[in-house]
Amino acid sequence: MASRPIRVLVAKPGLDGHDRGAKVVARALRDAGMEVIYSGLRQTPEQIVKTAIEEDVDVIGLSCLSGAHLTLFRKVIELLHQNNIKDILIVGGGIIPEEDVEALKEMGVKGIFGPGTPTSEIVDFIQREVGLIG
């Protein structure tokens, strides 16, 4: 396990304005002792990756409810690869149809958390996975 608290960027890629879930998750992670940066709305993948690097985060949580998840999550991951970053855990949530989950996992989104997921499940997942990377 890392000696410092886990640092998480909760980000809203694209134009989607639904941020209830992102904010609730951000707060739950904070309450679980993590350091959380919330990006705010309408972030480009470039902005998200830049913030992730500047803030030296262990985890990026992407939230999208507009149906643009395949395009936008892929772009974030590609940019991370271009920057030679391999040790950031990527998780995502939103309105994501079952059939897209496989494609997202293949591109490197380690955990997908749909509607109804208890925040404790997300906390546990992150703690376990970051422990493995670190």
């Binding site: 507009s66 149906g67 395009t71 936008l72």
Partner: peptide, 10 residues
Amino acid sequence: PMAEGEVGKV
């Protein structure tokens, strides 16, 4: 460019 992935979605 900001519209990428979002056109016709919601």
